[in-house]
Each structure stands twice: as C-alpha cells, then as structure tokens.
C-alpha cells in the first residue's frame, strides 16, 4: 500500500468522526464546526513544540572534537613512521 494512502485513510476516518459529531449534535454544532481549525492549530503546535524540544535537548559533543584532534596527531605520527605521506595537504 502506498504510504500516502495510509495517511489519507487516517484523515478520512477523522473527517467521518467529525461528520458523525455534526449529525448527532451531541455538542452544540457551532462548536463542532470549529473542530477542524482546532485540529490544524494543535497539529501546528505539536510540530513547533517537537522542534523546540528537539532544539533544547539537541545533544552536542564538544569533547569529541578534542578527542578527534588527539587521534589525528597519533595517527599522523604512526603513518609518518611507516612512510605514508600525510604532511603537506590541507
């Protein structure tokens, strides 16, 4: 099944539920009419929230850059001894 069809199915199910609500008028229909807007707004909020949380908790590793520099020095020493040409470039 195409993935987009799964998503469309989900959206159709939600719409069906909404139309059901409209028909059954369990809650006042003026409220029901606004539900899709709430849905879109909350989807947007979810997106922004996830990006925000992701940014705040973005894992960084400054110590890794230092360790890498040590590894580079070590590797260069070894390779120079073995006659590999590691000088000059960059």
């Amino acid at each position: 099944m195409k993935h987009i069809i799964k998503i469309i199915t989900l959206l159709v199910a939600i719409s069906a539920f909404w139309i059901g609500l409209l028909q059954a008028s369990v809650i006042p229909s003026s409220h029901t009419w606004l539900l899709p807007i709430y849905f879109i707004v909350s989807l947007g909020c979810y997106g922004l929230l996830m990006v925000g949380v992701g940014l705040m908790r973005f894992p960084t590793c400054p110590q890794e850059a230092l360790l890498l520099q040590q590894d580079i020095v070590e590797a260069k020493d070894f390779l120079k001894q073995k006659g590999v040409d590691v000088g000059g470039s960059d």
Partner: peptide
C-alpha cells in the same frame, strides 16, 4: 539519542535538522 551527539553545527543548522526530522 543519549550517548550520541553532533559537534560543529550552528543554530540554523540544528533548527533545519530538527524541523526536517519532525
């Protein structure tokens, strides 16, 4: 995830990466 991480990205790069991921 915990134990992983990125070094050397500016805020813009992180923001794009997070947005793309979400």
């Amino acid at each position: 995830v915990k134990g992983g991480g990125v070094h050397g990205w500016n805020l813009m790069r992180k923001l794009t990466s997070r947005g793309a991921n979400v």
